[in-house]
Write a protein that binds this DNA or RNA. Structure first.
Lengths: 181, 181
DNA sequence: CGCACCATGTAATGCGTTACATGATTTT
DNA sequence: AAAATCATGTAACGCATTACATGGTGCG
């Protein structure tokens, strides 16, 4: 999937690995993230596949930059993936739910500490979606009419993030009440 | 984490790899899953670490079974993990959100098809939590008073699953409305 | 003076999936 | 007659993380 994240971002404009990481950290992080080292490796693989092409831009004051561009083959591959329906649900892995499953073996104090910590983290994250992410979307789209349609979808995914975090925090609050009472 | 899932389940009773897979499929699947091959490999590693011990039970009609038991060191390791607070949010990876992020490049028809397919999957999954998972928890705990406390937590995680799927379906419904209108 | 930023990469390790291999019994 | 269940494992491969390696510029 990182493959398609990178191809997708490169449909907007050519970028270096470093830039791609920055853009991901401001946009897709909440549903797809990657480390820089992995991004570099994946870009290299994409170039071998002929889906992107790179040119080295030499700089004197700063390190040289390798700028990646999506190729026609890359665009074709990406849009093929995009139109391919996902016929299954994404399997989840959540450590905190796993712990809760075994929580009967944990003493009340330690459990409550963990639950309240998580609740606070999710509240903070909900707030983050509400303010920072919303602002980032505004900033990326204002004055750029060709991104109007994109904005709708970016906003939709932002809303999902916010509601998900709120649900999580609410649910944790309930569990805390249950453990306390 | 699979390590702790297995150790956690083995605190209830000794089991074979095959059984552990079955139990996981009925309980933790929704927040932690694994393939059989991976379970066997992990159990082998746990035995090397001295956290579980196995005995081979020979059978004539069926293949021999290797029964794993948690050791005192295993219990100590598990309870240490259980009491260790998770200080960060679990990073998410959701293909459908990634696709939605790039959905402006997709034609309306194909997009709507994917969104409605996903909505139906999430509705079905919500229903599954509501009925089947609830029934499985009932079944596992009825007539076993020492599981009363466990039941509370199993029910709590089930409720989270149900509410999460409902939220997802509701949100997809909204996005569908947006794309249509 | 130290830290963050810019910028790219390699190597080792870990965790997970898919495919391969075997083979009897029970259910459809 | 075919498929599912019981039961265990190995091997190849893929994707991700962590650590290692380098080194100049700008800011507090």
């Amino acid at each position: 999937m990182l493959k398609y994240t990178l191809l997708g971002l490169l449909t907007y404009r050519p970028m270096t690995g470093y830039e791609l990481k920055q853009v991901m950290d401001q946009s897709t992080t909440h549903f797809w993230h990657a480390k820089l080292s992995q991004i570099y490796v994946t870009l290299k693989g994409l170039e071998e596949e002929g889906l992107v092409a790179s040119t080295l831009q030499e700089q004197q004051e700063r390190p040289d930059r390798r700028i990646y561009q999506i190729t026609p083959a890359g665009r074709a591959d990406f849009s093929q993936w995009l139109s391919q329906p996902e016929t299954e649900l994404a399997p989840k892995k959540e450590t905190i739910l796993l712990k809760l499953f075994f929580a009967a073996q944990l003493n009340r104090r330690a459990l409550l500490a963990q639950l309240t910590l998580q609740r606070d983290l999710h509240r903070k994250q909900a707030e983050y979606y509400h303010t920072e992410v919303a602002r980032a979307i505004e900033q990326a789209t204002e004055g750029v009419p060709e991104l109007a349609r994109d904005k709708l979808f970016w906003e939709a995914s932002r809303r999902f993030g916010e509601e998900y975090e709120e649900l999580y925090a609410r649910w944790l609050e309930e569990v805390i009440g249950m453990v306390e009472g």
